[in-house]
Write a protein that binds this DNA or RNA. Structure first.
Lengths: 262, 262
DNA sequence: CAGTGGTCTAGACCACGCG
DNA sequence: GCGTGGTCTAGACCACTGG
């Protein structure tokens, strides 16, 4: 017993590493609800006393849970069972024209609808050579240039998404797309005004662990992967007119798509 | 210099933890290509000699890279920069009827098309009470029963996906759906033969770190998250007739969807 | 066999939070 | 000030890989 929590002892006969036995005990307690979301996991010193092992052994067990996303450590306070934050659902119709026509960008309209306060920061616009993954999607030759719009999206001040859009310079130059404020409805609205009537989007989804810069930009706790989306916008006639590269915190999002059976 | 690799020294004036400075150096080498996929990272003893720190400090730096999915450790051989395995693309039309009509299940047809050898194992069929997330999606009352089909998919002997399907017992009982071999075209073909003409699917996508059982079932290396998909099949008329809960290794998959602009 | 990573010990000092 | 987790040291023995 550690506090109110019943924890078994180490089985010295087992082949399983001691720290794994310990993390198994704690994981079981979390999965069965003996340790509920928000609960404090017994402190390192309590676990050392209970199991009679070195501190590094306990820390290795705790790190395993943290890397599975089951717990978060708070310096000076303790280790806690992670409580899942409210999630945002990204539906596959989120770029439908009926939403865009309200004059709001997709993100703003959607977050306001759920009662949150959306904001956007770190907006940067520049012109550059198109990177290779953008060239292949936009059908550009090596050396061709694009307008690059970067920004970060926040809900109630918490960062949830970074995004970088690429539009062929030939299309975007001399248009509001190169302004920091691209105007009501965002760049998709601007593209349609310029005669590129949008037909559909292709979205590719990957999942992986974040690298250091992404951990910082999205303030990610350890053990949380990211969604990496690359979306290509196609105009009627089949021309690709934009590529958007976005990174989402996976524990703030559920993606939702509709698939045809026909 | 460590072997052919140029590595900076620790900056003792920096606030940044020593092990993080070391992992920064190695991450930079990986991102710039000085350490290419498949390359061996300098061994712990070499890094200890180069940096003049304790072994645990080096190991902490290496663990950081591993938890980001950038490297894999092989006991007795060394630590290597991970080379991405060939990925399988899941397109949003993969359940279209034109594919199903070939008489093959979606997975088999698709993998054979790419030259791999598909297989399925761990097939289990049982009847049980529907869990809550299935009830809400199928519109069932508490206590109602479902046929549960579990299986694991492999390509060339490597596990890539586990899946569990739930079909209302009222529909599936007395049909081939309850057999281990559900017949050509899989259960979607059976449902259509029974008069449930499929209309569309809703697919929800989450990403998270795997728990222990998933690591084992999919033979996942550390630092690799999973996609967790929950797909609901709707028949014409709007009735939900199946829920499928699947877990995919994220580094074997890219998901791909088409979004309407209308 | 030598070299590698995997586990574990028993200490130390520090930075953070909270009362 | 005390308890918490964060970092670091300097060893030890083990298991696996490869020549």
């Amino acid at each position: 017993m550690v506090g109110d929590l019943a924890l078994p002892s180490i089985d010295p006969a087992s082949d399983r590493a001691v720290f794994k036995q310990i993390s198994d005990h704690l994981r079981h307690a979390i999965e069965t609800g003996s340790l509920a979301p928000g609960d404090k996991v017994p402190s390192e010193s309590r676990l050392i006393a209970h199991y009679g092992v070195a501190r590094m052994t306990i820390r290795q067990a705790l790190r395993e849970l943290q890397s599975e996303g089951l717990t978060v450590a708070e310096h000076g306070r303790g280790v806690f069972v992670r409580s899942r934050p409210p999630v945002r659902r990204l539906a596959s119709d989120r770029f439908a024209r009926r939403h865009r026509d309200q004059g709001k960008a997709a993100f703003i309209a959607e977050v306001e609808g759920t009662g949150g306060k959306p904001s956007v920061d770190s907006i940067k616009v520049e012109e550059a050579e198109a990177p290779e993954f953008v060239r292949t999607r936009l059908g550009l030759a090596a050396g061709e240039r694009v307008i690059v719009r970067s920004r970060r999206y926040l809900i109630d001040g918490h960062p949830v998404e970074t995004a970088v859009s690429f539009v062929p310079a030939e299309i975007a130059r001399e248009s509001p797309i190169v302004m920091v404020d691209s105007g009501p409805g965002g760049i998709y609205a601007r593209l349609e005004e310029m005669g590129y009537r949008l037909d559909h989007f292709d979205e590719e989804i990957r999942s992986r662990m974040p690298v250091r810069d992404e951990v910082r930009a999205l303030k990610l706790p350890p053990g949380v992967p990211v969604f990496h989306l690359v979306r290509t916008a196609f105009a009627a006639g089949g021309r690709a007119v934009e590529v958007c590269d976005t990174v989402l915190s996976s524990d703030a999002y559920v993606l939702s798509y509709q698939l045809p059976a026909r």
